[in-house]
Design a protein around this nucleic acid. Structure first.
Length: 865
RNA sequence: GCGGGUGUGGCGGAACUGGUAGACGCGCCAGACUCAAAAUCUGGUUCCUUCUGGGAGUGGGGGUUCGAUUCCCUCCACCCGCACCA
């Protein structure tokens, strides 16, 4: 019988099952109250208009979890939406004259169509787009509630200004002194801005990190560092004029080292400190110095190389413990206004910056801490002569009532004393600063505030919400189109009825992403952002998946938001993401022509070790693998891959090649390998199809029974691997099982039935990874249910027990052979069998073993010598 | 500078609480089928070697142990985060 071999038609099969799933609404979040819930979420995409490999990887990872959890009997919520506000839409408007809204909505349509062939188990009925008034109107209300609760406020402050984007950036968005998107050097400007009081929750956000044990340690650490809790003291230093008269206002200083107070030799304030500005009015030199500081760059290089400089204000500060002790007060370039109080006391012996400053201005260096194991006097002498501060623990010296105490004790004692004297108090300082949310952009959610000359900033009344964006805007000049719009901002004051101006700033787009996961719980509610009960039912997100680039920004903002919304009564939840997984990037080799131009992978032909450009056969040099990016032109278009190999093959490769948290190198041969497996499994399934269905026979050849055992072992491990995110190992297990089943000797007793059973199990196990082919095999093997709805297969624990065991035999820790015997064999018999091995005897050369270690079922180690 | 991570064949990576290092895949080599190619199938593939065997081997060096990729010390390389935070 010469049948033409049928080839696996992924196009037909994938479309067929995607249709079937959609028709049956397999992935609609179920409401069956008897099942436990499981919320799987990948960070929602920005609708750039083109799907990239990173998306495919991200959503595939989530899909594995969603499908697996569904099979395990959970009510799975796995929604999708669009993080649709953002700058690229405005850039498109600028470059192509298309309205940002039109551009964005078109992109959403395009990307939705690109997502569909991936066969993701998404509940599309919950789709949301954050740029729609139906979404953002709720956040306008939220914002006004935050204002009422004192969690949002407006203040004039120095802000990070991106001169390219013409907008303000949050501290989190300034990387190395540059805008996170534009890369332009960020300038400092003083503007009126809205802030969210994330600092109110600094301690809560910090301590709750301990509970997030299903988050990557790296992310937890980054957040801890970002919040930056320091314990110390606030100290008041009475000030004395150059003329010798005491001023009324003392200088307030923050320190973490109150134990070093007796080593003080100066105080210093930031150039932006109000006192500096005040003094500069009558001190031209100081004014110059302040201007000079403002000009200095904030980039790494600038900060590293800049010399510690100061300007003596002429003021003197009284030491908190010894009022007659006066130290000079400087304005110094290394003191930051936005940390602590913007003022420090300098203790050169125990702070590296202070010693550099002291050397330059010839200020005293007084050692007050010496290492416990050193001769204090000699140590102090060396230290005071050198240029290196000592910052470690030790014993306090030259410090009156603090003498003899270690650093911890001395700090405690110093704070007690400050409090007794009313000269200061213990306090906790955070590095975290409030989140500035005003952006001078069009394509964002309008801030629902009206500015009235008489009444000040007034909330837009509920009945006037939402404040929607005007459609007729021009992008012909730099700056905010809302500001330039002729009529939009002209309104009447809701309080007094007089003419007033609308706030033209919009929210930072991280505002939208701070609560979208809650919106998914009741995505189409008109009057509320979400139903409290629904939100409480689904939240927290059980498994969140996204890139590590949001380790601080989005993940910290969202945590804060849930704390804040809970305090405003929206829900009762602290932490939004119970489990967090950060996936690695998708990388590809880079290619450059002789002239340095980047060459795309699709334009490269490889010949042995050499590579050439297809278009002109010019040699190209092969560079290291780097994150796929437009600039290096090393991207691979998912669309092309899906058309050539289908989504199952793409998914399988992405999942099997590297562990999900590591970077993955995309290779053509890798995807081809995955494709080959699909074909192979398909052929095996076709073969299995011709075997009649039925229970496994009683009588089986031992070799066949061993295969049944292997099946059960795979059943036991694959689920485990999936739960631990060891997807690459899970795939390896399934492929291993496939090999074992394929290699069955079909002539043996019971082999046919086991072969069929094996292939069916492979289909079930591989289902979360490549669901279309799995579904097809499932159907072909006569299953009436749909695999997407089927439950995860269970294994028979008795089948995991082997009746024989293979034990390694070592002589002096080196492998010399193995013995295979019945599992019930006792230690003595194992030892005897091991010693009987010819290879062992040869090694022993007639000597008697000194010792024999027998580890049951694992190893026999014979110690000779 | 501070903090964190990683390091295993030609390549991506496996290896449970210390117990047969290299699962699974890519690549490569050989063979089968074919007029041929593709596809597919079978076998091999850590390195060295005087090859029915022996030796080395998980970044380098040292230690603990009968036994170390796994634990400890130390050094090196690369990657990431933060950075004048008082």
């Amino acid at each position: 019988m010469a049948l033409q071999e049928e080839r696996y038609n992924f196009r037909e099969t994938e479309a067929k099952w995607q249709k079937a799933w959609a028709e049956r609404e397999c992935f609609k979040a179920d409401t069956d109250p008897s099942k436990p819930k499981y919320y799987v979420l990948e960070m929602f995409p920005y609708p750039s208009g083109r799907l990239h490999m990173g998306h495919v990887r991200n959503y595939t990872l989530g899909d594995v979890v969603a499908r697996y959890k569904k099979a395990k009997g959970f009510n799975v919520l796995h929604p999708m939406g669009w993080d649709a506000f953002g700058l690229p839409a405005e850039n498109a408007a600028l470059e192509r004259g298309v309205h940002p809204g039109t551009w964005t909505r078109q992109n959403i349509d395009v990307m939705r169509e690109q997502f569909k062939p991936l066969g993701l188990s998404l509940d599309w009925s919950r789709e949301i787009a954050s740029c729609e008034p139906s979404y953002y109107k709720h956040e306008q209300k939220m914002f006004l509630d935050l204002v009422k609760a004192g969690l949002a406020y407006r203040k004039e402050s120095w802000v990070n200004w991106d001169p390219v984007e013409h907008t303000v950036l949050a501290n989190e968005q300034v990387i190395d002194g540059k805008g996170w998107r534009s890369g332009a050097n960020v300038e400092q400007r003083k503007l009126n801005q809205w802030f969210l009081k994330i600092t109110h929750y600094a301690d809560d956000l910090l301590t709750a990190i301990d509970v997030l044990d299903r988050w990557p340690d790296k992310v937890r650490l980054m957040q801890r560092n970002w919040i930056g809790r320091s314990e110390g003291a606030r100290i008041f230093w009475p000030l004395v004029d150059a003329s010798g008269t005491d001023r009324t206002e003392p200088l307030e200083v923050f320190t973490t080292r109150p134990d070093t107070l007796f080593g003080t030799s100066f105080c210093a304030i930031a150039a932006q400190h109000p006192l500096a500005a005040q003094l500069a009015q009558s001190d031209e030199g100081l004014a110059d110095f302040i201007a000079q500081c403002a000009r200095a760059g904030t980039s790494t290089a600038a900060v590293e190389t800049v010399e510690k400089k100061g300007h003596d204000t002429g003021l003197r500060a009284r030491h908190p413990f010894k009022p007659d002790w006066l130290v000079p007060v400087y304005v110094a370039n290394f003191v930051l206004m936005d940390y602590g109080t913007g003022a420090i006391f300098g203790c050169p012996a125990h702070d590296q910056r202070d010693i550099e400053f002291a050397r330059k201005y010839e200020l005293p260096v007084r050692c007050v801490i010496a290492p416990a194991n050193e001769d204090a006097e000699a140590y102090a002498e060396t230290l005071e002569a050198g240029d290196e501060a000592f910052t470690g623990d030790g014993v306090t010296i030259n410090s009156e009532f603090l003498d003899g105490l270690n650093v911890d004790e001395a700090q405690r004692r110093a704070i007690e004393k400050l409090e007794e004297l009313g000269r200061g108090e213990g306090m906790v300082q955070f590095r975290l600063r409030d989140w500035g949310i005003s952006r001078q952009r069009y394509w964002g959610c309008p801030i629902p505030i009206i500015h009235c000359k008489d009444c000040g900033p007034i909330a837009v009344p509920d009945k006037d919400l939402p404040v929607t964006l005007p459609e007729d805007v021009a992008f012909d000049k730099p700056g905010n189109p809302l500001e330039h719009h002729r009529t939009w901002k002209n309104v009447t004051c809701p309080a007094c009825g007089k003419g007033a101006l609308r706030e033209t700033d919009t929210f930072d787009t991280f505002f939208e992403s701070s609560w979208y996961f809650a919106r998914f719980c009741s995505p189409h509610l008109e009057d509320k952002p979400f139903d409290k009960e629904e939100a409480m039912k689904w939240l927290p997100v059980d498994q969140y998946i996204g890139g590590v680039e949001h380790a601080i920004l989005h993940l910290l903002y969202s945590r804060f938001f849930m704390h804040a919304l809970s305090d405003c009564g929206y829900l009762d939840l602290k932490e939004p993401f119970d489990g967090m997984f950060t996936q690695g990037m998708v990388c590809h080799e880079t290619y450059r022509a002789a002239d340095g131009a980047w060459v795309e992978p699709s334009d490269v032909r490889k010949d042995d070790d050499k590579a050439f450009r297809l278009s002109d056969d010019a040699p190209v040099s092969v560079g290291r693998s780097e994150k796929m990016s437009k600039s290096k032109r090393n991207t691979v278009d998912p669309q092309r891959i899906l058309e050539t190999y289908g989504t199952d093959a793409a998914r399988l490769f992405l999942l099997s090649d590297s562990p999900p948290d590591r970077d993955l190198e995309w290779t053509e041969s890798g995807i081809e390998g995955a494709w080959r497996y699909l074909g192979r499994l398909w052929r095996l399934a076709v073969a299995a199809q011709s075997i009649p269905d039925g229970a496994l026979p009683e009588k089986m050849d031992p070799a066949v029974l061993a295969v049944v055992r292997q099946v059960h072992r795979a059943l036991a491990t694959v689920g485990d691997d999936i739960e631990k995110f060891h997807f690459n190992s899970a795939v390896a297990r399934v492929r291993e099982l496939t090999n074992v089943v394929a290699n069955l000797d079909r002539m043996q007793d019971g082999a046919d039935a086991v072969f069929r059973f094996g292939i069916k199990t492979v289909a079930q196990l591989i289902n979360p990874f490549m669901p279309h082919l799995a579904e097809e095999i499932w159907q072909r093997l006569g299953q009436k249910t749909i695999l997407a709805d089927a439950s995860w297969p269970i294994f028979d624990p008795s089948m995991l027990e082997e009746d024989t065991m293979t034990i390694a035999v070592q002589v002096n820790g080196r492998l010399r052979g193995t013995i295979t015997m019945a599992s019930s064999t006792d230690r003595g018999a194992c030892e005897a069998a091991a010693l009987a091995l010819p290879a062992v005897q040869k090694q022993l050369e007639g000597k008697t073993p000194r010792r024999v270690i027998v580890v049951p079922k694992k190893i026999v180690n014979i110690v000779a010598v």
